[in-house]
Computed example of a mutant assay.
Amino acid sequence: MTERPGPPTTEARLAAVRHAVTAVERAEGELQRAVDEARAAADPEEEILAALAVRDAAVRSGVVELLDALGPASVAALAGARTKEHAVDWATPRGSLPGPDAARRLRAAHQAWGRIARVQGEEAARAWILRPNPELGGDSPLVAIKRDRVRDLTPAVDALLCG
């Protein structure tokens, strides 16, 4: 009789999460290249924008939640924006959107904040993002994200939540 494997281990599940994060980052780069190619070929801008509308709504929704949790100055810092007005503009329905690098950083921040907020509450998540973190070499998650160290975030969140 063959023994059935047990459920995946924490390590296996976290490896799957890290793999998925890498896949999302790769897909974001591919998306930007496809948009650039379509624009270079003079494809109709309205059709390009329609194809991006779902992604844009998700970005705006994440920015709105981060603005509520952290405020515009911190959201702008996470994204690497020059002013907090950029962050406020990204949250408005007809406002501009962050570029691909800023959007990737904002998604990473939103995912980390959301994971912590669901388990420990919004105040704990806010404090975690702003406070120096030994898992990030003493940088706060905000600074790590701003420096484009988004891959370091998942292990830091795991360390907090899994102890």
Rank of each mutant, 00 (worst) to 15 (best):
A16K: 06
R104M: 06
P7S: 15
W90C: 06
V24P: 02
P132G: 02
R4H: 08
A53H: 04
W90G: 02
A51C: 02
V150K: 01
P98H: 09
C162R: 14
D56F: 02
P93D: 01
G99L: 07
V150D: 05
A16Q: 08
L66E: 07
P44K: 07
V88Q: 12
A12P: 02
L49S: 12
P134E: 10
L66P: 05
A23N: 05
R4D: 10
V119A: 14
R105S: 03
G99V: 07
T2R: 08
D36S: 09
L67Q: 01
P141C: 08
G99N: 13
A41P: 03
H19E: 14
V21F: 01
A124H: 13
R39Y: 03
D139K: 13
R55V: 09
V17G: 03
V75L: 08
E45L: 12
R115L: 11
M1G: 14
R4N: 10
A27H: 11
A27N: 10
K146I: 04
V59A: 01
S61G: 10
S96F: 06
L78C: 11
L136A: 05
E47D: 15
Q111L: 14
L130E: 13
A124E: 15
R13E: 11
D56T: 13
K146C: 04
L52I: 04
W113N: 00
P44C: 07
Q111W: 13
L14W: 14
V54M: 02
R60S: 02
W90V: 00
L31Y: 12
G29F: 04
S61N: 05
I48Y: 07
R18C: 09
T92L: 15
E45C: 04
M1V: 09
L70Q: 03
A73G: 04
T154N: 00
H110P: 03
R118I: 00
L136F: 04
L97H: 08
A42D: 14
R105Y: 09
C162L: 13
P155A: 05
A91S: 15
R60H: 07
E46C: 01
A87W: 12
N133I: 06
R151D: 12
V59F: 02
E65N: 05
L161N: 12
A41G: 03
A109D: 05
V75Q: 00
A51E: 15
E25T: 12
K84Q: 12
L142C: 02
A91N: 09
A81W: 09
C162V: 05
N133Y: 00
V119L: 11
L52Q: 15
R151E: 07
L70F: 06
A112S: 14
R18Y: 04
A15E: 05
L142E: 09
R131E: 09
V75N: 00
I145K: 01
L67F: 04
P72C: 14
R126F: 08
V143R: 12
R13P: 07
A91C: 13
P132Q: 08
A12R: 08
